[in-house]
């Protein structure tokens, strides 16, 4: 027994081995940044932001919209748009098989999910990338869903908010994927002409063809803390310039310092910050502010209040 365990009162002290078996799978999560072991439910309540070090963990596209949009109303856009493999592309695996595997693993048809809804009652169209779907890569479906979402905005006078998380263009769709950069950017040109705002929210990671198209074309650009954002990947740059890159290179804070983004926004205040901004750009009344969600479980707060 270690000196620490000896110090503990006997009712707390338990045999580690017997205790371990009782812990159900996935009840705890280790923060990739600070290594703290976190209670899964608490982490979820905290929107997958580490309560100890505020590290923003990657989250899926659907989950992103789930925590961003008001519960009602929501209407998914472009659900019917699904990928096809017209090039019959095959590397070490067939593209067709990669699509099926990604669909199975994520439950999504492709890497971008878009919905019409509201944030603190401000109406908008929002989209979010699912990085787990082939690295959030942009192919024809992502491009078409993006444009479909932008068209809803154009037809109904709504602002657009897109959360990016992508490695770039989808190589398996070859030049078709490159052209999605031009396609999405052109749709934003139309929104701009019509005076409809596009808010781009960059999350970890936003690279390559996504970063070099719509993601950097926001009227306002937000980024989550410490997200990797850039055109070329750090490995490619290192190989080209043959030097080690400085700490924090291509992170949100680096981009803010170099004037590339407007604001770094904590995920837990994202709803409010976007709603406040959009309400002003759309000349609406200020949104009702949200009650701050406490990372401390509610039951404990109540108990403390009673004593």
């Amino acid at each position: 027994m270690s000196w620490f365990e000896k110090l503990m009162p006997s009712r707390i002290r338990t045999e580690a081995t017997s205790e371990k078996r009782k812990v159900p799978e996935g009840l705890w999560h280790k923060c990739d940044k600070c290594d703290s072991v976190l209670y899964r439910a608490e982490l979820e309540r905290n929107l997958e932001v580490c309560p100890k070090c505020t590290h923003h963990m990657r989250i899926g596209g659907r989950k992103r919209l789930e925590i961003f949009l008001d519960a009602e109303p929501r209407e998914e856009i472009g659900v019917d748009i699904e990928p096809v493999d017209i090039l019959k592309f095959k590397d070490s695996k067939k593209y067709k098989d990669r699509i099926s595997a990604a669909q199975k693993a994520t439950g999504e048809k492709d890497a971008l999910i878009t919905m019409k809804g509201r944030v603190l009652k401000v109406p908008l169209v929002a989209g979010a990338f699912d990085f787990a779907f082939m690295g959030g890569s942009m192919g024809a479906v992502v491009g078409e869903r993006f444009v479909t979402a932008a068209n809803v905005c154009l037809n109904e006078n709504l602002p657009l908010v897109i959360f990016s998380a992508s490695g770039g263009a989808r190589m398996q769709e070859a030049l078709f994927s490159l052209m999605q950069m031009a396609k999405t950017s052109a749709a934003l040109a139309k929104m701009r002409e019509k005076g409809l705002p596009f808010i781009s929210v960059l999350t970890d990671p936003t690279m390559g063809g996504v970063s070099a198209s719509f993601a950097t074309l926001g009227d306002v650009i937000f980024a989550e803390p410490n997200a990797l954002i850039g055109f070329a990947g750090p490995r490619v740059i290192e190989q080209t310039v043959r030097e080690t890159l400085p700490d924090g290179f291509q992170r949100s804070e680096f981009l803010l310092e170099h004037g590339a983004i407007d604001r770094i926004v904590d995920r837990r205040s994202m709803r409010e910050e976007v709603a406040i901004l959009l309400s002003m750009l759309m000349r609406l009344a200020p949104p009702e502010k949200e009650e701050k969600k406490s990372p401390i479980p509610e039951t404990e707060v109540e108990q403390e209040a009673e004593t």
């Binding site: 950069m181 070099a212 950097t216 074309l217 850039g230 070329a232 740059i237 080209t240 290179f249 590339a260």
Partner: peptide, 17 residues
């Protein structure tokens, strides 16, 4: 487009986009 440190600092992505 050039994948260099300065190019990233001066926002290569935005220039292309």
């Amino acid at each position: 487009a050039y994948p260099g440190v300065g190019a990233e600092e001066r926002n290569q992505s935005e220039a292309i986009a």
